[in-house]
Structures are given as structure tokens and as C-alpha cells.
Design a binder for these strands. Structure first.
Lengths: 345, 345
DNA sequence: ATTTCTCCTTGAACCGTTTTAAGCAGATAT
DNA sequence: ATATCTGCTTAAAACGGTTCAAGGAGAAAT
């Protein structure tokens, strides 16, 4: 591997001149520049990033930490991050934590050791101890899909509370009065926020009409887990006509379980997902869902952190909030009694 | 940001001792070690990776270059890569090329500049000029989901030719005699290999029974493109009863287009996908597909390249080949005439 | 011919580690 | 008391760049 010294010797100039040829070509005499350029090309010289970073204290690397890259929501988000980074000549280290706090903090250590300039993270849990530690080390942080509670950092989020209320209101208006919440652990911030949105929406409904809520918390927000949960719970005979799912994968898993049990969706049970992943539309029963702009979320977050890295002194932390939207497809429908009511009125 | 010097001064020992405390704790006197450890913890000292890499010539970073991270096949693959890397304390830079050769070679440059130890790549096109250039720079390379034609590198692949023949044979045995191939550009190696597998399988069928093949090549192997293509082509009246798709996304897009046109799948048209993504099972019409072990592919590739990085002199390039499997679900069925034939016999 | 000015180029210091040879105690052997 | 050994610790030399003060060469001015 050629070094800048080899190039200098070959071109008959000094070390510093080669460096200038690379970084500030405009200050060189044109023929010197040409000479050096030629040698660089011939030797296929690539500057050593480590040496460069060591001196400059920057490396154009950011980390992205997500709980589940298999979830198309995060895949799209990652794509947004990557595209924004690519445009700014940054590079992204992808870290997938499988929703595990432990893996998350290990990854944070690795990223710190790699001296990344900034970290984009969707924390798995609400504890930000590990995060605070990272921030203390002087690594810039931005929170994705979640506001920066107390932390000195930028954040890009979707209004989860509003998303929760959208879902509940939709089912309520279709006449559902017994609703199952199929979500993840309450210490996942998104889950907590949506639940509080649901509760707020409930509070606005006259007590006589207020739907009954049951909640099942899955260990992991995957299709497989949802499938198993529904298969086990149904015989116990929880009585509900609508389900609000923590994400679309859960909804798909649930629908698959219903199909196996010959329970018709949406005729007997309405199911509403969350995220509006691409597949929602091609699903077995096209999914009613709450849409979140995942790609834009990622893109915006990357832009924020990169601008902070490029211009630390001028930077002020900001908080960007996107609004979720309800996308109605075929997995939700009015309850039978509600259909009757509609006819009468 | 604390440096090793600060720690040394604070602990009242020399620079080298601190370094030893970090890298070879066993050679220090126990009380010296304890003393240094304490200061390290107190100061929250993290060794600077750039300096370390500069000295060691290694950085425990590998690059992963894929054509479309939104495709669950590659997502799973990336997950495999990440998991294997994490276990070996490596870190992965994810590069998404959108199937563009140009973006691919730009990313290769960026990775070279970052001095990654190795690159895992699923090349977008068959040209390996950019790849050869990378190999010349001394960056280790491994090819994923594609054999290393002539290139000095490891490769991990699935037998695409066999996969193609599986698909064709399945449709043939169901009685299909007019088959549409809905694939990507021929210069995508996987596409070419599967096509050649299809041709080989065709050659083995008696000429009188040999299915007629029509081929449509999509610019990009996405659901959206397939949807548009089917919508446009159908009125032209190509006559076929079965489709072999380049991947599951294409199959889903095609099925969506058929649904819009009220053409029943599989009653009127059989559709077979490729990859067997998780979602295939929950699709509108559960998808018959050719399963590829994406996660294992990624995991194996990462293991190969990491072992090469850790032990360059002992390493010999290898080629791992996985076998695809046919997964029959509901999107394929016998043709009407074939059903009749079956009854008779 | 000498001075002044301008424009490039150069050499050296530095970034934060790892590594190795040399050094220094204290313990053991003579 | 001196020599030998053992077990840690240390100082200094890399690693491959960037940056900046200082130097040199040639042109223009006197």
C-alpha cells in the first residue's frame, strides 16, 4: 500500500506538496499539481483514513442504531439515513440491536471506540443511561422516532400519541366497543406514547360509549410472536371485535393466526396496524394502518446530525415532528351491530 | 476527550503502561493495573480508534454493498453479516446502490478511502472493473450471492441455475406451456444464471411438450415496476398461464396488477416468486417461491472475510454454495387442461 | 546589480496510539 | 558485598497524514 511518502519521492516533491495536491490543489503551481496527480493515479494511491482522521479529528462516519432492521419501517428509515449521508460523503455504520438494551449499549461502546462523529439512535428502551454516557464522551447524538427527553440532542419523531388516538378513534367510529391492544413492552417509548394517545382519545368519549380495552404485551414486536400470542389467547376467550397492533408485522402475524382459526378479518375482527409498510397493501388482507414517513424520518435525522458535525459551533439542537396518517384498507370494518345502526339512521 | 497521556499523568505512570493496561493487562503488576484501571474508568477514557488503526494497520471495519436494502432478501442478508461481524467485534458499513453501477463504484471509492479491511459485495452488474480496481488496492473482497468469476476472492452463492430449473420444472409439471419470465436486466448475474438454468431444464423436456417462453426485463426489480409492467403488457395480449418472477417483490407487484384486472391467481395465472421472503407467507395470495437462505448467506460471507482479515497468510479463498428450495404455497396451481388430464389418468 | 515582492515549496511539529529495547529495582545466589 | 536474575516500567521510535512558519527562486522595481 503506497503512502504519501512514496508518492512524494516518485514525483520528486516534498511530502507537504503531495498533501496539498490532495487537499488544496488550488495553491499549487499548475505543473506541480499535474505532475503529482499523475503519480497519484499511476500508483493508485488512496490516503490512509486513519492517519487523516487522527490529525483532523474527523472521520465522516456516523452510526445508526435500530432495534430491528428486518422491520421494513426501519429498513426504509435506514435507507433515508444512507441516502442523506451519501450525499454529504459520509458513511453509515449499521447496528441492529434486536430490541436488546444490552446489545444496544455494546454497540454504543463499539461506535465510541470507532470514534464516529455522530450517532443516530432509536433507543430500544426508555433508559437513557447508556445514551447519557455516550453524550458525555462528546459524541453527538440524535434521537430517531422519539423525542429527546432531557437529553441535549436533536430529535426527529412522529407524533405517536396522535397516532394512537387515530387508531382508537377509527375503531370507535366503526362501532367497536371491545378492543385488544397488541403491543410491545411498555418501556418502549413509542408504545407508551401511543398508549397515552389512546387513553386521551378514550377520555373524550362519553363514558357510556367508551370502549373496553384489554392489553397484551409481546416480548418482541414480531409477526411470529403475535401469531403465537393470538393462537394461545383466543381460546381463553377474551372478547373483542377490534385489535390495535404495535406495528404492521404484529398485525400480519395476528391475521395469520385468525386465518388458521377460521376467524374472518375484518368481518369478525377488525385489525389495525402501525407503520404502513410497503407490504401492507399486498397483504393477505390489505392492512388498515397508521402511516409514518420512515424514509423522511431517517433522511431528516441524518441531515441534522451531519450539519451538527460540520458546524458544531453554529448548531442549535432542534426537534422535528412528523404527523402520522390513517390509511384505511380492508382489515377494518364496521361491527355487525354498527352496520345495523347505520342502516336504521 | 481524554487521551492516553492524560490517563498516564493522572495515574502517575508512563504512557506505555497505560497502553499495556488496555492491551496486555496480564503483564502488569496487579496493583499498577488496578491503579490505571481506576483512572481509566473515572475519566471515561476511550482509546482513539484512528490512532490505534494507524499504528496497527487494522480497523475492524468491513463494508457491505447491496443493490437494494429494501428487499427483505438483502435485509436478512445484512442481518446475517451484522451478527457475524458483531460476534467478531467488527463493524459494518452499509452501502445501498439502488442497482446503479455508478453509485456502486462511488461507494467502493468511499470504502477504500475509509480503509475498510474487507468488502462484501453483491455486484449490481456483471462488470467487475471497479471490483478489480478495489482488489488491486489490496482490499480484501468477498462476493455475495454470486460466484467470483476469475476474481481472486471468496464467494458465497446460491445455485441460481438450479433455482431457475426448480421454478420452471414446477410450472411445467402443473401443465403450464406458455410461461412469462418477469426478471431484471440480463447483465445482473443472478438473472443470467437463473435464465440459463431455465434453458437447461427446457432442453430436457421433449420438444413436443416444451413450454413457450416470453421474457420481460424490468429496469429495476421492484414491486412497483412489475405492477406497471403487467398493467401495460396485458392488454397487448401476451398469452401465458404462468409467470416466473425475478424475486418476490416482482411477484407481489404482478399479483396486485392481476387483482386490479380481475384476473384470478392462481386459477387463471400461476405466479412463482424468488427468495421466499418472510412476507411471502402473509401475502394476499400466499406465494409459491424459491427459498434462499439469505441470513446464512450473509453470515457465512462475513465469517469468510473476517477470517481472511484475521489471518491473511493462512487464508485460502473458498467458494460456498447453498442450494435453493421450492416452497409451494397458493400462487401456483395446475392449468385447467392439466386438471382435466389429471382426472382422466 | 541590488532590493523588494510574490508565489510556491519545504521541513518539522504534531495527532494518539502500539511496540520494543533498554533501564531500574529488589530478590536470590555466590 | 558483589554478581546475576527476574519482573515491571519507561522512553523513544514508528504509523501516515495535515498544517504552518520559514525558506528559496524568479520577476519586477530601483
Amino acid at each position: 500500500m503506497a503512502s504519501i511518502r512514496d508518492v512524494a519521492k516518485e514525483a520528486g516533491v516534498s511530502l507537504g506538496t503531495v498533501s496539498n495536491a490532495i487537499n488544496r490543489p488550488e495553491i499549487l503551481a499548475p505543473r506541480t499539481l499535474r505532475k503529482v496527480q499523475k503519480v497519484i493515479d499511476e500508483m493508485g494511491f488512496v490516503p490512509n483514513a486513519s492517519a487523516r482522521n487522527l490529525r483532523a479529528g474527523r472521520n465522516r462516519v456516523i452510526g445508526l442504531v435500530v432495534p430491528d432492521i428486518s422491520n421494513p419501517f426501519f429498513t426504509d428509515l435506514a435507507k433515508g439515513v444512507n441516502d442523506a449521508a451519501f450525499g454529504a460523503k459520509y458513511v453509515v455504520i449499521l447496528c441492529n440491536t434486536d430490541e436488546s438494551s444490552e446489545k444496544e449499549s455494546q454497540y454504543l461502546d463499539v461506535l465510541a471506540a470507532q470514534n464516529v462523529e455522530g450517532i443516530l439512535i432509536t433507543p430500544a428502551r426508555d433508559t437513557n443511561r447508556a445514551l447519557a454516557a455516550v453524550a458525555e464522551k462528546g459524541i453527538r447524538l440524535a434521537l430517531v422516532d422519539r423525542p429527546a427527553h432531557g437529553l441535549q440532542a436533536c430529535s426527529v419523531a412522529v407524533n405517536d400519541s396522535y397516532g394512537g388516538s387515530l387508531a382508537l378513534t377509527h375503531l370507535y367510529e366503526l362501532g367497536h366497543r371491545n378492543i385488544l391492544l397488541l403491543t410491545g413492552k411498555e418501556d418502549i417509548p413509542q408504545v407508551a406514547d401511543r398508549n397515552s394517545g389512546i387513553r386521551e382519545a378514550l377520555a373524550k368519549i362519553p363514558a357510556s360509549e367508551r370502549p373496553q380495552i384489554t392489553e397484551i404485551r409481546l416480548d418482541s414486536m414480531s409477526a411470529h410472536n403475535a401469531f403465537e400470542a393470538i393462537k394461545k389467547q383466543i381460546p381463553i376467550g377474551i372478547d373483542f371485535t377490534g385489535i390495535i397492533c404495535g406495528n404492521d408485522l404484529i398485525a400480519l402475524g395476528a391475521i395469520r393466526a385468525f386465518r388458521e382459526k377460521n376467524i374472518a378479518v375484518p368481518e369478525e375482527v377488525s385489525v389495525i396496524g402501525y407503520d404502513d409498510i410497503d407490504f401492507a397493501d399486498s397483504a393477505n388482507v390489505p392492512l388498515t394502518s397508521i402511516s409514518q414517513p420512515a424514509y423522511e424520518l431517517g433522511y431528516a435525522a441524518a441531515e441534522l446530525i451531519i450539519s451538527e458535525c460540520e458546524n458544531p459551533e453554529r448548531h442549535v439542537h432542534q426537534r422535528i415532528e412528523f404527523q402520522p396518517r390513517l390509511i384505511v384498507r380492508s382489515s377494518t370494518a364496521p361491527t355487525k351491530s354498527h352496520r345495523a345502526t347505520l342502516k336504521i339512521s
